[in-house]
């Protein structure tokens, strides 16, 4: 084998691919065309959740295929879909009580604190801790801990209690954003002003201005420091 190549196993089959590739690029290099299992290619969508182990190890590891460089001896499989259950709700009518999350997702009470979810998170989120916070109805904590979740779903694949963590976190965050966090006071004011059409004359005037005049205004506009 050439030194610039690595040996990887895609669903058990061996391929040799250039060493510098990400898992995603390596799978493509092996000749696969992604339909599922690839979304943003930038670490934001969670479509490329991947489980692997090294050839001589029993230890399962996880990765986002688009953000992880291959290593020699990786045994790879993607999990492009997981049948997670989402509770349907009407966000406007939910109330941020201690029980709300447990009512939406009663299975969170079955958490045995095994920590598998936290161990498996490719974003290094303390998943188990936010589930515990959700059980206590501590919305703020759930928000803080879960904000960087990209919903790849790996946590749910490992949970013995069949919790779909990312949906629990999403519900908690939406409830927090809609009902606990204060609405922007300056926005109230602005919306009122918009209703009164306070800015329309100024705007209409700009719309009627010549490009020359606009250019002058633009060049001389003051800039907030």
């Amino acid at each position: 084998m050439m030194k610039d190549f690595a040996r990887i196993y895609i669903m058990g089959k061996e391929y040799q691919v250039p060493r510098h590739l990400t898992i995603l690029q390596a799978i493509e290099h092996a000749g696969f065309l992604f339909v599922r299992g690839c979304g943003c290619r930038g670490g934001f969508c969670g479509a490329c959740a991947t489980v692997y182990r090294m050839r001589d190890s029993y230890k399962l590891k996880v990765a986002l295929a688009c953000q992880t460089k291959i290593e020699d001896g990786m045994y790879l499989a993607q999990i492009p879909f997981y049948p997670g259950n989402k509770a349907e709700h009407n966000i406007a009518s939910l109330t941020p009580t201690t029980e709300t999350l447990c009512m939406l997702y009663p299975e969170i009470m079955r958490c045995i604190s095994c920590g598998s979810c936290s161990k498996v998170c490719p974003q290094d989120i303390k998943v188990m801790d936010y589930i515990n916070a959700a059980i206590r109805g501590d919305y703020k904590k759930v928000v803080e801990l879960s904000f960087d979740c990209i919903m790849c779903g790996l946590c749910a694949t490992r949970c013995p209690a069949e919790i779909v963590h990312y949906y629990v976190a999403l519900a908690a965050r939406r409830i927090y954003g809609a009902h606990i966090m204060k609405k922007a006071p300056h926005l109230d004011k602005r919306l009122q002003e918009m209703k009164e059409k306070k800015f329309d004359p100024e705007l209409e005037k700009l719309m009627r201005s010549s490009v020359e005049d606009l250019k002058k205004l633009y060049a001389s506009r003051d800039i907030e420091p």
Binding site: R174, Y176, A178, K183, P185, L187, L191
Partner: peptide
Amino acid sequence: PEVIRWLEELGVIFDKAEDG
């Protein structure tokens, strides 16, 4: 402004100070 309010109501968590 209306869109931002709509997002707030949908539960989007913007970076905010304590008073909103």
